[in-house]
Structures are given as C-alpha cells and as structure tokens.
Amino acid sequence: MDALKSAGRALIRSPSLAKQSWGGGGRHRKLPENWTDTRETLLEGMLFSLKYLGMTLVEQPKGEELSAAAIKRIVATAKASGKKLQKVTLKVSPRGIILTDNLTNQLIENVSIYRISYCTADKMHDKVFAYIAQSQHNQSLECHAFLCTKRKMAQAVTLTVAQAFKVAFEFWQVSKEEKEKRDKASQEGGDVLGARQDCTPPLKSLVATGNLLDLEETAKAPLSTVSANTTNMDEVPRPQALSGSSVVWELDDGLDEAFSRLAQSRTNPQVLDTGLTAQDMHYAQCLSPVDWDKPDSSGTEQDDLFSF
C-alpha cells in the first residue's frame, strides 16, 4: 500500500511530472533526481522514447528462454528487412502500455495491464526491452520488442512496467475491499429498513384510530445511509488515497477476473515476472533518469539497429 499512497501523494503535489519523457535525446524537461521519484509518476504514465523492432507469436506467457528466442527472431526479421526502425513513445501506467508513433502521434497499440504476463531486458541484446501480452483480438500470446538507447534504459522500462503492474494490483485490492464494505453496509441498511417496515402498523389501523404518522421519526431512520450505499452501487469504487486528485481509476471486468485468478494461483500475485536478476534490479533502481541518457562506457552510441 505504500507504493499506492506515495504515488497518489506525488501526483497530487505535481501532476505535471508524469508528462516528462525519457530517452528522447535531450528533449525532456528537468528530471527527478532518483528512481523513487520517477516511480511516483506512474499514475498518469511515464513516457519512454524507443524504437519498435516488431512482434512475434509465442506459445507460453512467460520465460527467459522463451523471450530470448522470440527477441532473436524479431531482431533477425528487422535486420533482414533493412528498413529504419519506427520511433515510438511507450506510455507506461497502472492501466497498461500505450504505444504511439512519434511522427504521426497515431495510436499503435493499447495493452491493458492485466494482459501483460512478462517483461524483460534481454541478456543477449542488452539494449532490447520486450514484453509478452495476450492479444486483445484473440487468445494468442505476442512478444513485442523495442530497441532502447542503452542497457540502462531497457532495464528502466522493464522495472517501470513491473512497478505499474504492482500498483494496478494494489488498486484492485483496495477497490475489492471498498466494494465488500459497501455491499455489507448496503445489506445491513436493508435489514434495518426491513425491520422498521415489519414493526410499522398498517396504514388502515392508523387511520381508524385517528393517529398521525410521525414524519420526524421517519426522517431519523437510516434511510439516507441505505440510499447512499445503493444509489451508486454500479459505480466502481476508487482508492481513497486518490481522493481529490485528477486521476480516475476504473476497474473493468477483465482486470477484476484476471487479478482474482492471480490472487488464487500465485504466492506473490502482485509481482510481474521479469528477466532481471536481483543485481540488475538493484543497479537500475539506483540510477537517476539522467543516467539513462548518458552514453555507455563501451563506446559511442549508434542510432541504428545494427549497432548491437
């Protein structure tokens, strides 16, 4: 819950932080000083300027060897085509990944977070970031790969997607708890209302004896509580940590079903599988986004697919 609360507080303090972009060759504004600060901008989305290598189908939802083989196929196909790589912007948030063309600003792909089953910074092609997700059109699994400016960037994108998945799962947990509370309150309110109706004398007997209905007592009954809980029953509950912020979080049926399955089948359902080692994760978390744009010590960066 700490990640969720800190993310909400950060967004309320400075929503404009989320509009910064990394990996864009110096076009961005001043960047936060450390990885923790940038992680807090996830709610509205972190932007990464990358190059799209392509996509291939895979048979399993996750796995280092599986993704490595898929990336190898994608890279080989991209090299064989001889075409310049498409420059894209990857927007990562707890909602998922939005992929747009840098030149036309046209939407290429919009992947809900619950469809993503794996992401990684490839070991062999260490400047490549990739994720595996279920197609929104059918049940097939797709591996999408992107060329980053350097290994640090690939690791940073991988960690960002993993963190977005974690925050999304926490949102789901909060929403589920809130819905259970509202359902319980609604049920209790309905029981109270039913009890009051059972003990209320029939209207005919009131008229016969000349008694008047006590409207004041009726007004004191917990009807307002019942209506408050039943009027918006169809509205999706939102985490309290975000009250007053500009973010509107809505959970669709697909996300609810997917996270429910994860909660039942996995020990740590909030953790998205990645190909990063503990050492890689520690190294990337210690980086400032400013470091992502620094040239690798191995030599001059080449803006070309064939540089790796």
Rank of each mutant, 00 (worst) to 15 (best):
L11W: 04
N34K: 14
A219D: 11
T41N: 11
A69H: 14
V88G: 14
S135L: 14
H137I: 14
E180K: 07
L43N: 15
D191P: 03
K91R: 05
R115Y: 11
H282A: 00
S265A: 00
P295T: 01
S260C: 01
V174Q: 00
P239Y: 00
Q86L: 15
S205C: 05
I97E: 01
K62L: 03
A130Q: 08
V75Y: 09
R95E: 02
L262P: 02
A168N: 01
A69N: 14
K184M: 04
F48I: 05
L255N: 07
G23R: 02
A284I: 01
L203D: 13
H28K: 09
R238P: 02
S93V: 06
A3D: 08
T267K: 06
S245A: 09
I113V: 13
L305W: 03
Q106R: 10
V111M: 14
P61C: 11
W35C: 14
G82E: 14
G26Q: 03
S49R: 11
A7R: 07
T158V: 15
A185P: 15
R115K: 11
G275I: 07
L287K: 06
N110W: 09
I71W: 04
Q173K: 01
K181S: 13
L99G: 15
D296K: 14
L251M: 07
C148E: 04
S14C: 06
L47H: 13
Q136E: 14
L43E: 14
Q86K: 13
E235N: 06
L147S: 11
R9A: 14
V290N: 00
E170W: 10
F171A: 01
E250I: 00
D198H: 01
D234Y: 11
L213M: 15
A162F: 03
C143V: 13
S21E: 09
D253N: 15
P239A: 08
A68K: 07
C199A: 10
F169A: 01
L103A: 00
V226W: 04
K220V: 10
Q134F: 05
Q106L: 03
T274Q: 02
Q20W: 05
Y114G: 04
A7S: 12
F129T: 08
V207H: 03
D253V: 11
V248I: 00
R13L: 13
V111N: 11
G24Y: 05
E216W: 03
T36L: 12
E301A: 14
F171Q: 06
R39G: 02
R261E: 08
H144S: 14
V157P: 01
A3F: 08
I113D: 09
V247R: 00
H28F: 12
L305N: 09
M153E: 03
S224T: 12
S265L: 00
Q173W: 09
Q279L: 02
N211A: 13
E59G: 12
L215Y: 13
D198E: 07
R261T: 02
P222T: 05
R95N: 00
K51W: 06
S67H: 10
A10N: 12
R39P: 05
I97W: 09
V161L: 15
K72C: 11
A78H: 11
A241F: 09
T38E: 12
